[in-house]
Computed example of a mutant assay.
Amino acid sequence: MQYHIPNELPYDFLKSIGILSVNQVKIDLANGSKKLECFNNVKTFLESNDGEVQLGWVFAQLGNIVFKLNAHVVVKLPDGSFRCVTPSEHGDSEINFTPDNSVADLIVNNQLPSKAYSLVTDKVVEEFVKLENLENKMRLEKKVDAVAYIRDQKYQISNKLIESFTKNQQL
């Protein structure tokens, strides 16, 4: 099962976790931009352009059962608008982005964080989300063996997660 970029955002859920506005930001690549290197792409762009670093979140979803915030960096232009200078992993031309400067406090070892949330009340989904968040913590701390162990734990519950996914898609 793969996360996808949601076509429709669960605004009630976002509001429940304190996200009150979402910006659609065009992806306008800078020369030499690389996937998964948003912070470096923004720094390189700002070496020859006006603007500033803007931290925040982009969103991914696993069916209608798990919602994930992935830290991301875009350019805040002098007029206050945003520009994403990082190629999309999914070939998108724009992203849904919410600015959040508190992301800076969550960066560990120059690694950007993520946060997963259960969208349903389901024991298996909640266990998966707990593992997702623990995996993120271990990834940030560069604990490779722990990440491998957690991925194995997620694999071991994958059949039950698929059952939960199927059950909750029918609701």
Rank of each mutant, 00 (worst) to 15 (best):
F67Q: 01
F97R: 05
A60Y: 15
K143F: 02
Y155S: 05
V108I: 15
L131S: 03
P10Y: 07
T86Q: 07
N64D: 14
Q153H: 03
L171C: 06
K115P: 00
K167D: 07
K34R: 15
E132R: 10
Q61F: 05
N110Y: 13
V25W: 14
N168T: 07
S88K: 08
V144H: 11
V85A: 08
E37M: 15
G80Q: 04
S21A: 06
F128A: 02
C38W: 05
V144G: 01
C84E: 09
T44F: 11
I107N: 01
F39C: 00
P113F: 02
L20E: 09
N136F: 06
A60N: 10
V103L: 09
L62R: 12
M138L: 14
N70P: 01
L69G: 01
I17P: 07
K130A: 10
Y117M: 05
Y3N: 03
K15G: 02
I19A: 03
S33K: 05
A60T: 10
A116S: 15
P6N: 00
F82G: 04
C38S: 07
E141W: 05
F82A: 04
I17R: 06
K123N: 11
K43E: 06
L36K: 14
G63W: 10
N40R: 14
M1P: 03
L62Y: 15
